[in-house]
């Protein structure tokens, strides 16, 4: 069971959290401009990497806040945790992905 650092509450057990899947998927500003396949891509398609992955998590049984987390899906190492709206730490260092 992961030990997750909520940006608002600190370290808590994974059982207090809900994983919301891949992070940084923006809802298209004008959905009508998208073709059916493009819309389906937004709706259904997600990356599934072995290794570093950015995900949204919610501290459901705590403060109720959503935040982002970069996690290694193979080792379960948590690389970083950052608040909604913040750029991923790697990007802030200029290592844009």
């Amino acid at each position: 069971m992961l030990l997750i650092s909520c940006p608002w509450c600190g370290q808590r057990d994974e059982s207090e959290f809900t994983c919301g899947g891949e992070a940084h998927i923006l809802r298209p500003a004008d959905p009508d401009a998208l073709s059916d396949p493009e819309w389906a891509d937004y709706l259904f398609m997600r990356t599934n990497p072995k290794g570093r992955h950015r995900e949204r998590w919610c501290h459901t049984h705590g403060c109720g806040r959503w935040f982002n987390m970069e996690r290694d899906t193979a080792t379960h190492d948590i690389v970083s945790v950052y608040r909604m709206g913040e750029a991923p730490p790697d990007d802030r260092d200029g290592n844009s992905s």
């Binding site: 919301g20 923006l26 949204r56 919610c58 459901t60 806040r65 959503w66 909604m84």
Partner: peptide
């Protein structure tokens, strides 16, 4: 409630 919160916090802050 969770659904509405998710949209407010993650998509439309």
């Amino acid at each position: 409630l969770a659904w509405l919160e998710e949209w407010l916090q993650t998509e439309w802050p």
